[in-house]
Design a protein around this nucleic acid. Structure first.
Lengths: 171, 171
DNA sequence: CTGCTATCTTGTCAATGGCAAGATCGGCCA
DNA sequence: TGGCCGATCTTGCCATTGACAAGATAGCAG
C-alpha cells in the first residue's frame, strides 16, 4: 500500500478547521479526520501529538491569518475592527478555538509567536492601552455574539459598522 | 443499596458547572459527574437525556442568574456592564456554555425562556438598538478576553471600568 | 394492600483518544 | 551503485466514554 506523501499536516489543519466550524470543537474526531484524509487513525498523532495539538495548530494558523488581515486593514481603528469581525465570521472554525485555553497547548511555541504577531498588529492601532482594550473588546464581543446567533441580521458588516463606530469615535 | 433521593438534578447542574469551569466543556464527563454524585453512570441520562441536555440546563441556569444580576444592577449602563463582566468571571462554567450553540439543545423550552429573561433585562438599558448592541458587545468581549487570559490584571473591575466607561459615555 | 410512576440500576455496544511496536519511504553518504 | 537512517505512516491494542435497553426500587394514590 502506498503511503501518503502530500502535506498531510496542512491538510489536517484545514480539515480540522472546517470540521470545528460545522460541529464545534467537541465534535471533532481525530479518527474521522484521518478517514477523510485517507490515512490511518494514528497518523494525526504523529504530526500533532494529541487532539489539543491539532487544535493548537488550527489556532496558530488563525492568529497568523488574523495578523495579516489586521495589518492589511491599515491604521484606521474602524477598518481594523471590521476586519476583525470579518475574519471571525469567515473563519469560524479558527475563531472558535483561538481563545479557548482549555482546548489548546497554551505554551506551544508556534502558537505563541502567532499570538504575538496578532497582538502586535492590534497594539499599534490605538493611542493608549485602554483604547486598544476597548476596541478589541467591542470587535471580539460583537464577533462572538454574531457567531453564536445572539446578534443576527442580513449583513454582518452593516450590523457591525454602527457598533464599532461608536467605539472608534471616542478619543 | 439505598437510592439517591435528594435533588439530583440540581446537584448535577452545579457539579457540571464547576467541572466545566475547571476543564472546559469538552473535558466534562457524564460518568465522572455521576461518580462524584454517588450515583450510577446512567443516572444523568434520565434527567437530562444526553450530554447536551446537561449543558443546556447549565446554560439556562446561567441566563437566569445573569438576568437577576443585570436587574439588580439598575438602570445605569456602566453598572450593568460591570455586573455582566462580574457574572462571567464569577460563573465561568456557566458563561463558557451559554453562547456555544454547538454544545446545547438550542430549542429547549427552559433555555429559551431564560435567554429571553436576560435579553429583556439588557434591552431595557439602552436608548436604541445599536447602543444596546454596542454595550453588550463590549461587556461580552471584555469578559471573554479576560477569561481566556488575553486581557489580565490584578483586578477585573479595575480593568473593566475604564473600558466600559468609554462605551457608556457615548450617547 | 395493590398498582402506578418517577427515579435509579445493571448490562451492553460502538466509537474515541492515546500508546506501543512495526513497516515503508525517501534521501544521504561511502 | 548500494546500504543505512530518520521521518512518515501502519496495524494492533486498551481504557474510557456516551448512549441505549431492560430491570429493580421507592414512594404515593386509590
Amino acid at each position: 500500500m502506498s503511503y501518503h506523501h502530500g502535506d498531510l499536516r496542512r491538510a489536517m489543519t484545514t480539515a480540522a478547521a472546517t470540521a470545528v466550524a460545522e460541529q464545534g470543537p467537541a465534535g471533532l474526531s481525530l479518527r474521522e479526520l484521518a478517514r477523510r484524509a485517507g490515512v490511518s487513525h494514528a497518523a494525526p498523532a504523529h504530526h500533532f501529538g494529541d487532539k489539543a495539538g491539532v487544535l493548537t495548530a488550527v489556532a496558530a494558523d488563525g492568529f497568523t491569518q488574523l495578523a495579516v488581515a489586521l495589518t492589511e486593514a491599515g491604521d484606521d481603528l474602524l477598518a481594523a475592527g471590521l476586519a476583525y469581525v470579518r475574519f471571525a465570521v469567515d473563519h469560524p472554525g479558527h475563531f472558535a478555538v483561538m481563545f479557548d485555553r482549555s482546548l489548546l497547548h497554551a505554551d506551544d511555541a508556534e502558537l505563541r509567536t502567532a499570538e504575538r504577531a496578532a497582538s502586535d498588529a492590534l497594539a499599534g492601532l490605538a493611542s493608549d492601552a485602554d483604547a486598544a482594550r476597548a476596541a478589541w473588546s467591542v470587535a471580539h464581543g460583537f464577533a462572538s455574539l454574531w457567531l453564536s446567533g445572539a446578534i443576527s441580521g442580513p449583513d454582518v458588516g452593516a450590523a457591525a459598522e454602527p457598533v464599532l463606530r461608536r467605539m472608534a469615535a471616542t478619543p
